[in-house]
Design a protein around this nucleic acid. Structure first.
Lengths: 235, 235
DNA sequence: ACAATAAACAAACGACTGTTTACATCGGCG
DNA sequence: CGCCGATGTAAACAGTCGTTTGTTTATTGT
């Protein structure tokens, strides 16, 4: 039963050497961090069942058993990934939403959409950390019906999503709730497909449309969705 | 090499019962058809790399090597699946589109959207064959960046997609082409996410919104998207 | 300094991967 | 009959899968 000790996790590194200067050229990632970083990239690129632990540990230059040691299991690795990445996104979403709501009792639709979409598309896009890997990963898991991944997704984002639906209803007082919910669903679809950056629309348009261009994507997506949300509810 | 002894017959079972009746209640699927049917369902549910050939052949009650024999490889099986399923969808799309175009030189936006979305969501939804398996499978593959699957997708649907973009431009003469292309991309997202039926929006709405209800989904989706398409182009 | 604990490691576990092989069976034709 | 090509099949191939094992190395607390 070594598992019990493994769950203890990590202890904070405890720097034995005092760093005289911050920001060294090589941040000297720990084993844990290296695994997370590589796994994020590879899960995003090939899907959960498309990558083996050996591929991850080899690329991360880490022992195979390290994953079991630090994360318990492959699923545990995915959970840790989400625990690290999803929280900042949900948090930033709610911060921006609060900004919208405190400005006026009837918030502006476009601002709400922006508050929801922008963090999802931009946060975690740090070139030094493998770029938009988590964005892609999220889009990929969104279409997987496996119950384990669904639980992770739902735990990470359900609460903030509910708050956004409520905010959208405030912004569209005449709209029946189910109608708002359907439209929220379509918005999720447009968002995830943009995040997935599948290359299909590039191919269809000779590269004119590039979902990886986040600024432009938001610039086109928000007015499009806003018009959809504002259209008359269907009978 | 192979021990020539020990092979013994088996020939067990051998039901020589001649079927006296044509077209029995069970169409008596061929091996090929049984594999396709089961593979479609299982690929949709667990993804390409999530199902093994043994799982498929066991469920289809078929020999393991049959897949290699009939389809060459696992990828060949996927290609055969698309060759069988995608063509009718693309064909029906173009038929409906032609109907729109011959009615008037400036076709109605809603009709074009309907012509694009309805076949994707409804064709192949045969409850006796495991329901909307191909619909789900397509949504799943749409977010996979693997080049092999992308080629299959693109071969099956690119041509008809281009024609729809052109038709949309006809319906929206004042709209710049890139804007139409962006909006087409968002439409694809809403469509695929509805097809994936990931369960997320059901969870968020206590089941009020069910993307699996195709009639209702189209009923909400088309006006939503039409309003988005008609909104003023962004600068 | 010494024991306790955390971290890393090579090696192996059994089960499963897609593919290939060599052989058996079959209906139809000469 | 014998031969044919198409079809079906058990077994093996050469790996990879996620996980577990027992052990060794590093770091910590006292």
């Amino acid at each position: 039963m070594r598992k019990a000790s493994a769950l203890k996790v990590a202890s904070v590194k405890a720097p034995p050497v005092k760093r005289p200067r911050a920001v060294p050229a090589q941040p000297a990632l720990s084993v844990r961090e290296r695994i997370l970083e590589v796994a994020e990239r590879m899960f995003a690129e090939h899907g959960m069942s498309g990558v083996g632990l050996r591929a991850i540990t080899t690329e991360a230059k880490v022992n195979l058993a390290s994953i079991a040691y630090h994360f318990g299991s492959k699923d545990g690795l995915l959970e840790a990934l989400f625990a690290q990445r999803a929280a900042p996104i949900a948090q930033e979403r709610l911060r921006l939403l609060a900004e919208c709501l405190e400005k006026s009792a009837k918030p502006k639709l476009e601002d709400i959409l922006d508050a929801f979409l922008r963090p999802a598309l931009t946060l975690g896009v740090q070139p030094q950390f493998g770029g938009p890997a988590f964005v892609k990963l999220r889009a990929r898991l969104a279409t997987e019906p496996e119950t384990t991944t669904r639980k992770i997704l739902s735990k990470a984002f359900d609460q903030s999503s509910r708050q956004f639906i409520d905010a959208l209803i405030k912004a569209l007082p005449q709209m029946p709730r189910p109608e708002v919910e359907w439209r929220f669903h379509f918005m999720l679809g447009a968002m995830f497909y943009t995040m997935a950056d599948s290359g299909r629309i590039q191919a269809l348009t000779n590269g004119r449309v590039d979902p990886g261009d986040v600024k432009r994507a938001l610039h086109h997506m928000i007015p499009f969705l806003a018009a959809g949300f504002r259209s008359a509810p269907v009978v």
